[in-house]
Amino acid sequence: MPKRILQGTVTGDANDQTITVSVERRFKHPVLQKTVRKSKKYRAHDANNAFKKGDFVRIIECAPYSKSKRWEVIAE
């Protein structure tokens, strides 16, 4: 099964080797037919502490680094 790749904005970089990425998705509401925006936060592994708050990054699924980290940053 292929690994998912998501893109979003870094919303937090306070922890060592970890960033919080907010990923927004848009879809049409099934009944109202209105475009809805939903966002979800993912914690991703950033080995070099290269990314700061506000950066646009891509993350890929990986084996678990910790209880909450299941993603890692693709170097861009």
Score class of each variant (00 low, 15 high):
10 V>N: 02
67 K>G: 12
75 A>S: 12
48 N>M: 09
12 G>Y: 05
21 V>L: 07
51 F>L: 09
2 P>K: 12
25 R>C: 04
64 P>E: 00
73 V>C: 06
35 T>P: 03
49 N>S: 06
74 I>V: 10
76 E>K: 11
51 F>W: 14
14 A>F: 07
11 T>V: 15
16 D>C: 06
53 K>Q: 11
30 P>E: 03
1 M>Y: 06
29 H>V: 01
73 V>Q: 04
37 R>A: 12
17 Q>E: 10
35 T>M: 10
37 R>G: 05
27 F>L: 00
76 E>L: 02
2 P>S: 13
1 M>T: 09
5 I>F: 03
12 G>S: 15
54 G>D: 08
7 Q>R: 13
27 F>T: 03
5 I>M: 00
72 E>L: 06
26 R>H: 13
35 T>Q: 08
9 T>V: 15
46 D>L: 03
44 A>K: 08
65 Y>W: 09
36 V>F: 02
45 H>G: 05
32 L>V: 00
48 N>E: 14
36 V>N: 03
39 S>L: 11
59 I>Q: 06
8 G>E: 10
26 R>F: 14
67 K>V: 07
58 R>F: 09
27 F>Y: 15
14 A>P: 04
50 A>W: 04
22 S>H: 12
20 T>Y: 02
3 K>R: 13
47 A>V: 11
21 V>P: 10
67 K>L: 02
9 T>M: 14
60 I>W: 01
74 I>Q: 00
43 R>G: 00
14 A>C: 07
55 D>P: 06
70 R>T: 09
24 E>S: 15
44 A>N: 06
11 T>I: 15
21 V>G: 05
45 H>L: 08
5 I>K: 12
30 P>S: 03
60 I>G: 00
60 I>R: 10
70 R>L: 14
32 L>C: 02
16 D>T: 11
18 T>K: 10
44 A>D: 08
67 K>I: 03
72 E>D: 06
56 F>L: 15
18 T>H: 01
40 K>L: 12
71 W>S: 04
12 G>L: 08
47 A>M: 03
25 R>I: 07
49 N>V: 05
14 A>T: 12
12 G>R: 14
10 V>M: 08
